[in-house]
Design a protein around this nucleic acid. Sequence first.
DNA 1: CGTTTTTGACCAGCGC
DNA 2: GCGCTGGTCAAAAACG
Length: 397
Amino acid sequence: MDSTKKDEDKLNSTKCEIYEAKEENERLKRMLSKMVKDYKSLQMHFQGILTQKNSKNNIIATSNNIHEEKEQVELVSLSLGRSSTSRELIKKELLYDDQNNSNKKHNKLLFDGLELGLDCKFTQENSFEELKKENINNERSVLVQNYPPSKMDYCDEEFLQQIPQKKARVSIRAVCGTTTMNDGCQWRKYGQKIAKGNPCPRAYYRCTVSPLCPVRKQVQRCSKDMSILTTTYEGTHNHPLPFSATAMASTTSAAASMLRCTSTSSTSQQFLPNIDQNLHGKFNFTNNNAPTFHLPKTSISTSQSHPTITLDFTTNSSSTNSSSSSFNSYSTLCNNFKSEIGPSSYLGRPCYSNQPFITSKNNQNTIIEYSSGVRNSDDEWIQKNAKVSHLGFDHVT
DNA sequence: CGTTTTTGACCAGCGC
DNA sequence: GCGCTGGTCAAAAACG
C-alpha cells in the first residue's frame, strides 16, 4: 500500500517536473524569438544609420561587399588589432579618413572602438589557417595605421606591400609576486627561454580558452627589479572571454587602439581627444555598471618590427597629476593584481596609479606610467583598492 | 590517467 | 653562408 502511494507520488513529482520543463522550454522559446526579433530590429536600425552616415559623408559605397566588410569592421571584438580582413579595406578606410575632416574621423574612431568585445564574425567553419591569416591581416592593418601619415601614400599598392607583417604587442609591467599575473584568461605554458640581456627566463604561454585561439603571452621578470613582472600580449582572441578576463583584454585593446591611432611623430595632444572618444565608445554600454573610461594624455611610438605599447603599472614616486581620471581597466587590473600579489607584498612601494604619464620614449616602446599613493600598511592597501574598485565603475569628478 | 610543465631541439629572421 | 637570437615544437617528466 505504502509503496503504491510512493510510486504515485513519484509519478506526480515526475509529471510536475516534466510540466515545469515544458514551461521552461516555452519560456526559453519566447525569449529566443524575442531576441531574434530584437536582433533583426537592431540590424535594420544599424543599416539605417550606416546608410544615413554614408550619404551624409558622401561616401560612395560601390558594392555590397564594402558594406559587408565595413560591418565586419564595426562588429566588436576584444582585439589587439583591427578587424579588417583585407588590405583593400584598409585602403578604403584610409580614403575614408582622407575624405573626411577630423569630426568625421572621430566618428570612425567611435566605430573602431566598437571593436571591443562583440566581434562575432568568427564561425566554427573558420579553419585555423584562416584564423591565422586573418590575424596577420589584422596586425598589418595596425601597422598601416602606425605609419606616419606624412610618409604614407594611402593608395600606394607598393607601399602597402612593403609593410612588414609583424604583430602588434601590448606589454603590461606590474609589481607581481607570482609567476604570472591573473588576467582572467586560461593559459598554457609552451616554452621558456633565457633572453639576451636578462638572466630571468622568459615564459611563453598560449590561450587555452579556445583551442584555436592565436593569442600568446610572454612573461618575464625585470632583471633590475625582480618584483616587476612584464607580461606581453600578442594576437586577437577569437572567442568570448570570461568576464574576469575582459578587464585585461579591454586594457590591451585600448592600448592597441592607442597604438594604431598614433604615429611615431605625433604627440599626445594631437590624438588624445579622439582616443578618449574612442574609449567612450567602447565602454558606454547601457549596463548600469557601465564604466566611464578616460584616457589621460600620452604619446606612442612603435618599433618597425614589433610595434609595442607598454603600460607600466609599476610604481613611480614622481607622480604628476592626481586628477580625477578614471581608468576602469586599470582599476580592475589592480584588483586582479591584488588578488595575486596580496597586500603584504612589497609594502612601501607606491600603488598602481590612476594617471598615466610618459616615463620614457625610444624607438622601441613608449612607457606609460600610472601612479598614485604609497602603500603604507595592509589596511591602507585594502582601502585604496576598494576605492579603486569603486572608481572603476563610476565616473570620478 | 589526463593535463600541465619542463626542457632540449629545431626553425626562421636578421645582421655581418 | 654563418652565427646569434627569439620563438615554437614535442617528448618526457611532474602533477593532481
